[in-house]
């Protein structure tokens, strides 16, 4: 049995867009091309108001996130016997820790900047919310990271945290004294969730544009691509 693709692509039954097959892949492609055209997805210029240091901290957060993910992947490959004993392991472990410190450092300054410029203006509420979700899940990821160190520090943190987690009622299924559970959450589930939120957040920034300052907002509608000469 064969499917006549040409017939689908040229027909427009039930008001479907000509040239797009009435399938979920066709609808997804139409949506993606309409909302995220290449010039929005990878812009080569930014509005003039982006020429400020405060707009740099989102990209710095992404860079720190990449360092954390890559160093974490190396730690996962080599294991705790390596990161606790060897010089290279201690170094990569430190890179993972300090990358995380910088990730939160940059992310909080990014948050302050966006809060004081009310970055949810101009149909950017979803951008703001996905940023909040990325921030909250990052805290949980960092917390499980402290529990995954496999040293006295992680044991102390686990025993101190269990009462707090139990008080919320979550301790029944989220046991901070269960090293295996915390490690798996730290290296698989939570990084996956953070990556998804960060990815959606960045795509929404591309879709709606960078929020303009108050003086330049004029309703704060999504900025059109204007040549600014400040390619960033």
């Amino acid at each position: 049995m064969s499917i006549d693709v040409e017939e689908h692509e040229t027909a427009s039954p039930h008001g479907a867009t000509p040239g797009v097959a009435p399938t979920w892949t066709g609808r997804f492609r139409r949506w993606a091309v309409r909302d995220l055209p290449p010039d929005k997805l990878l812009p080569d210029t930014q509005p003039a108001y982006v020429a400020s240091w405060i707009y740099v901290f989102g990209a710095l957060t992404l860079a720190a996130f990449a360092v954390v993910v890559l160093s974490g992947a190396v730690l996962a490959i080599k294991g705790p016997a390596w990161w606790h004993v060897s010089s290279a392991g201690l170094f990569v472990n430190s890179v993972h820790l300090w990358g995380t410190e910088l990730f939160f450092f940059f992310m909080v300054i990014h948050l302050w900047g966006k809060f004081f410029m009310a970055a949810w203006r101009g149909r950017r509420k979803a951008t703001w919310i996905t940023g909040v979700l990325a921030f909250v899940t990052s805290i949980a990821t960092a917390f499980t990271g402290y529990l995954s160190q496999q040293n006295f520090d992680s044991e102390w943190i686990g025993t101190q945290a269990k009462d707090g987690i139990n008080a919320t009622g979550a301790g029944a299924f989220w046991n901070v004294l269960d090293f295996g559970q915390m490690l798996l959450w730290h290296v698989l589930l939570l990084p996956l969730v953070v990556s998804i939120f960060v990815g959606i957040h960045v795509l929404l920034v591309r879709r709606r544009g960078v929020v303009p300052p108050f003086d330049d907002s004029a309703g704060a509608e999504p900025a059109q691509a204007e040549p600014a000469g400040t390619a960033s």
Binding site: D44, T45, A51, S52, W53, I54, V56, F57, F105, I109, W112, G113, P227, A228, G229, T230, A231, S232
Partner: peptide
């Protein structure tokens, strides 16, 4: 760092 980020001038790159 936050105060410096909103006060220090940003170096202008090449014109597009």
């Amino acid at each position: 760092v936050f105060v410096l980020a909103i006060t220090l001038p940003f170096p202008h790159g090449r014109k597009a």
